[in-house]
Design a protein around this nucleic acid. Structure first.
Lengths: 246, 246
DNA sequence: CCAGCTTGTCTACTAATATAGACAAGTTGG
DNA sequence: CCAACTTGTCTATATTAGTAGACAAGCTGG
């Protein structure tokens, strides 16, 4: 009687729960490269057949792996192996698109919303008089369709009127700046902290509860050193590692 | 706050059952020598405290180890680490007491019962005329108080009248033979098989259900080569390894 | 002998694990 | 568009794991 290669049976009554056995097996297939980064895992019903267990049991195993940041489930599409964390250099020149492309992945920016606001803190950091109207822009940035960060930026409204249209079109802050006559810009200051993702961030960044976000507060300036952008970015810490060279 | 060294907590909700964690921990302490062979394990209630679980959970862990032949529980006394299997040479000269003492353990024989019987098969193997009355003697032999084997022996009643008294006194077949003028004797033939212990053997040999016994059928002869003893011994296979030198 | 230890067995109950099935809702490709 | 796939969520139920307590029965040392 030939062994059925499609079946990888589990040990029942061994004192190790089935969901743990399955999670360990899938994890080892990921770390050994049988399931490479960004590849799609077999569907839950397929894993159900392979391991000879109930779908709920497979789901619990996948939930454990998602909790560890090893896989990510997308409703309607399937489960995917997470990429290795992207090294994200922090220095005088910080460009999201360049950083993502340097890792061989495809950058994308999605505009969430635009508002005109008056806000004392960013105004002060932009070096503008109090109560100057600001453009506040909310974005989500991704690599190969995987969301990496969610950012809020403040610009002087008078100087960057219509910036959001260019952002909408290109998804890139650098290109939107270029369309407004800013050929180059530089990082003035960067403050880094971290905390658990809040529910809104879990949703936008497709994170399981309890995962951390890196909170990066930054000020960018034009060629003359005048502040033009105050930005607060929340990176999914499982997908991005900040690298500071001194 | 100092760590409580008396407590070795277990991982709850890890997907590994508590009885398995405890069994693995105790097993590793046995194999690393923290609990040497024949030493007494902490009592169940003590282990209950150390691991912070219910006594039933500890008992299940100990049952697993007993099932593997690593420990043995004795009602009213405690649980003990099993000795390494005793190498038991099978050749022309086979002596239980010598074999046990060679391993530095104390041999003992306990007489279970004596009967006068007529039995065709042992009579034939003793080379006696059919229907010759035989002495049938049942024994349990142990080392350091741990039962190793249960044996049934047949002798010619006429020649060995009163043998059982000597056996009772000395617990040794060799000495009983000596008292009957047999200074030396030799193994003529040995047949070896194995099977699971039956309930009576489980009881006499203090074996958990399902463990194997080695069944050794042997004929011993006097210095002139005449058969004097037909013996069927059941060794606890976890405690004795038969060694045949060729 | 007997108090105090040990293991063995039993019942009752709660929590964790696993199964079974149904249906909602998002995605994809023809 | 829509059929066929995917993941997400819900209810219900059976089995295993773990807790709690009581009591029987064997051993040991004073």
């Amino acid at each position: 009687m030939p062994i059925d290669l499609d079946r990888l049976p589990v040990d029942r009554g061994s004192g190790v729960s089935l969901w743990r056995q399955i999670a360990e097996r899938i994890e080892s297939e990921i770390t050994t490269g049988a399931f490479p980064p960004s590849s799609q895992l077999p569907s839950e019903s397929e894993l159900t057949e392979r391991f000879g267990v109930n779908r709920h049991t497979v789901r619990r195993a996948l939930a454990v792996l998602a909790e560890k940041g090893l896989v990510r489930a997308v409703k309607g599409r399937g489960s995917f192996v997470e990429e290795a964390p992207l090294p994200y250099p922090i220095g005088r020149r910080v460009r999201f698109s360049e950083n993502v492309m340097a890792a061989g992945r495809a950058p994308r920016g999605r505009l969430l919303g635009v508002a005109t606001v008056v806000d004392a803190e960013p105004t002060r950091r932009l070096g503008l008089p109090p109560r100057t109207p600001l453009l506040r822009i909310e974005m989500v940035s991704s690599a190969n369709g995987v969301p990496l960060s969610r950012s809020t930026s403040w610009f002087e409204k008078a100087r960057f009127e219509g910036l959001e249209a260019e952002l909408q079109r290109t998804g890139s802050v650098s290109r939107a700046f270029a369309a407004h006559g800013i050929a180059d810009y530089a990082r003035l200051e960067t403050a880094i902290s971290a905390r658990p993702a809040d529910p809104a961030e879990q949703d936008l960044l497709e994170l399981p509860p309890g995962r951390a976000v890196l909170v990066v507060d930054a000020v960018n300036a034009d060629a003359e050193g005048r502040p033009i952008q105050v930005q607060r970015t929340r990176f999914a810490a499982d997908r991005v590692h900040l690298v500071v060279k001194s």
